[in-house]
Design a protein around this nucleic acid. Structure first.
Lengths: 159, 159
DNA sequence: GACTGATTGTTGGTATTCAAACTATCCTAG
DNA sequence: CTAGGATAGTTTGAATACCAACAATCAGTC
C-alpha cells in the first residue's frame, strides 16, 4: 500500500507514507509546535531511558541546581508547571535522595529546594545526555538560526 | 518582595519577577519548545472554553474532516498520538455525534472515520477560533518568518 | 487450504497534567 | 493585637498520554 504513492512521493516523511491533507492545520503554529515538542520529548525520553527521568523531571532538577533555595511556586513558574504538579514530582525526587526540602525560617509556609550531592551528580550526567540530544536539534534548526528560534519560542511562551 | 530586584530588572518578564537562572537549560531547544507549546495550548483552551474541546480533540476533528475515511492508526500518526489514546477520544466524539465510525469491507479490522453534519458545523466554528488564536501567534512569530518557522518545526517533528 | 507474521483497534496499568478546594502561614490595616 | 485578605504547598478529581499485551483480521508462503 506504500508503493503507488503517486502524490508527494518525493517527500521523505518519517514513515514514508504520511501523505495526509492537513487543511487549515497546516498553517497553525500551535499544531506544529505540539508535534515538534512531542517528538523532541520522546527522543529525549528514549535517550535517558533507564534513568527514570523524563524531560519534565530533568528540567526540575536542572532548575533547582541552578537556583538553590528556590521555592516550589517559583520553580513551577520557571518550569511552566502548576504547583500542584510539582508536589508528587518533588516527593519522588526527595524519596530518591536527589533533592532536599528545607523549611524556611522566615516563611514557614514555603520550602527551600536544593540538590543533594547525589542529585548534583545525576544532574551532571543527565546534562551530558541533554546536550547530546540538543545537538541533534541544533543540527535540524541550524546553528545560524538557533538563537532567533529560541527567542521566538520564548516570546510564544509568554502568550 | 518585588521591589528591590536589583538584578535583571530591565527584563519585562511574564510575571515581572522570573529572574531565574536557567543554566544549560537556556540553550536547550527542547525546553523552550515545551514552554511555548504549553502556553499556546493553554491560550487555545481558554479561547474555546465551553466547547469541551481542547487542542488535541480539535486536531482530530480537523484531520478527519480533511481526510474522510481515514483509519484510526493513520489518524494517530498524523496527530502524533498513540492509537490507544485515540480510542477513548473517538468514543467521546462518536458519542457526541460529531464523528462516524464505519466498518471497512475490504479490511474488517479497521474503521473509516468521517464527520457527521454536526461535526462539520462544529469544526467550522472551531476553525474560526483557531484562526484567531493563530493570528496572535503569527503576530509573535512575524509573518515574514512564519513559513520558515513552521518548516523548522516540521523538521523537528520528524526526529 | 493451513501456518506464520504483520497490522488494527481495544484494554489495562502507570504517569503526568491542570484546576479547584483546602490548610497553614504571612502580612497589612486598623 | 486582631481581622482580612494574600500566598505556599497539598489533596483530589478529571483528562490525556504512553506502553505492553491482547483478540481479530489480513497477507503471504508452502
Amino acid at each position: 500500500m506504500a508503493k503507488s504513492l503517486g502524490k508527494a512521493g518525493r517527500r521523505r516523511e518519517k514513515n514514508a507514507e504520511e501523505a495526509l491533507r492537513l487543511g487549515p492545520l497546516a498553517d497553525f503554529i500551535g499544531f506544529h509546535l505540539r508535534l515538534a515538542q512531542e517528538a523532541s520529548f520522546q527522543a529525549f525520553a528514549r535517550r535517558v531511558r533507564g534513568y527514570q527521568m523524563r524531560p519534565g523531571r530533568f528540567a526540575v532538577l536542572a532548575l533547582i541546581g541552578e537556583n538553590p533555595g528556590i521555592s516550589q511556586t517559583a520553580l513551577g513558574r520557571a518550569a511552566g508547571r502548576d504547583k500542584s504538579t510539582l508536589t508528587p514530582a518533588l516527593n519522588d525526587l526527595v524519596r530518591r535522595a536527589l533533592v532536599k526540602r528545607r523549611r524556611v525560617a522566615s516563611d514557614r509556609r514555603s520550602y527551600a529546594l536544593s540538590l543533594t550531592v547525589k542529585g548534583k551528580r545525576l544532574l551532571d550526567e543527565l546534562t551530558l545526555h541533554a546536550r547530546a540530544h540538543d545537538r541533534v536539534l541544533d543540527e535540524i534548526v541550524g546553528l545560524r538560526h538557533k538563537a532567533g528560534f529560541i527567542r521566538t519560542l520564548r516570546r510564544l511562551a509568554m502568550v
